[in-house]
């Protein structure tokens, strides 16, 4: 499915011809043009750069690719980036020093951004197939990059199905997509669940793995893209296996701490793969060959 990034043959293909002679560590000056409060602890930042008086996308990202966002004086971190015509969207959960600070900023704020980084989802190889998306919590951010691609290229794919869960209705991110945009797309089933409902919640209550088992998606000619908290992934993979999904047809993203984003600083390795360069997207089959250290 995805190219086996770890093999020496593939790594050797990255020859000097592909080398970009720019200083890859210097961020591009960009501006936050819009901030959407998705949930109490998740915000989506629209980021553009100014070019000849117009706000344009800083750089384009393929589905699943990453961008390094920085607040000078605070820090820098890697996030999944969603490509849009004139901006990038970064959906960021408040979890640490940098993200706490990011949640305080207002539109108009200057930030630094560099990228795109990583391999991205193998959308070309999924063409013509059914796609089952599974996400938990903020894991919908990377999955959404693939969903948007499939929606934008609707005729290239067969049936689409998203199974998404969060802790509570208030923690559902991208509700405008979940309940408005995506249900209106042809042959796109959107199944949403929450761990605990509230007075207004009429949808499913329960964890993603159990919900998935109930929904029984058909594995025939279907590729599954799954992102979420490790515990959800762990139990969902068991269900996918039971349903008949092969490891080659299950794709996920891995997360490690990153600093340089260009495969030099060392820390994001899992075995001989650098997640910033060779990842973050891997098939389950590839992951089974990697050391279990993430």
């Amino acid at each position: 499915m995805v190219k086996d990034n770890a093999t020496p043959e593939n790594l050797a293909k990255a020859t000097t011809e592909e080398i970009k002679r720019i200083n890859p560590l210097i961020p591009m000056k960009a501006k936050v043009t819009k901030i959407i409060e998705e949930t109490p602890d998740v915000k989506t930042f629209y980021i553009s750069k100014e070019e000849n008086g117009q706000m344009v996308v800083p750089f384009h990202t393929a589905p699943g690719q990453l961008a390094m966002l920085s607040l000078p004086g605070v820090g820098e971190a890697m996030f999944s980036a969603t490509d849009a015509p004139d901006h990038l969207q970064l959906s960021i959960k408040k979890v640490g020093t940098l993200t706490d600070e990011l949640h305080e900023i207002v539109p108009g704020q200057t930030v630094g951004i560099r990228g795109p980084y990583g391999n991205g989802f193998p959308m070309d190889q999924i063409k013509g197939k059914n796609v089952l998306f599974i996400a938990g919590g903020i894991g919908l951010a990377p999955v959404r990059t693939a969903v948007r691609y499939c929606v934008d290229h609707r005729d290239d794919f067969a049936k689409l199905h998203l199974v998404y869960g969060s802790r509570s209705p208030a923690d559902l991110v991208f509700q405008y997509d979940l309940f408005e945009t995506w249900p209106a797309v042809r042959d796109f089933q959107v199944s949403v669940t929450v761990d605990r409902g509230d007075d207004n919640w009429k949808g499913n209550v329960g964890f993603v793995p159990a919900f998935l088992e109930e929904l029984k998606p058909n594995p025939d000619n279907t590729v599954c893209i799954i992102c979420g908290p490790p515990i959800m992934i762990k139990f969902t993979l068991g269900i996918l296996d039971k349903l008949g999904f092969t490891a080659e047809n299950v794709i996920t993203t891995l997360e490690m701490r990153m600093k340089c984003g260009i495969g030099k600083c060392g820390r994001c390795n899992i075995g001989s793969c650098y997640i910033c360069l060779d990842g973050p997207v891997f098939t389950l089959a590839e992951m089974k060959k990697m050391p279990n250290e993430y």
Binding site: V95, T97, M256, R267, N269, S272, E293, Y294
Partner: peptide, 29 residues
């Protein structure tokens, strides 16, 4: 070195750190 925001560390103890160093030198590199 590898500790992520939120506190998760894929190489939390000395065992993983020592293994990483020698595996990097002798296997991954």
């Amino acid at each position: 070195y590898a500790m992520m925001a939120g506190g998760h560390n894929p190489r939390p103890s000395k065992k993983e750190k020592v293994r990483q160093r020698f595996m990097h030198k002798l296997r991954y590199f």
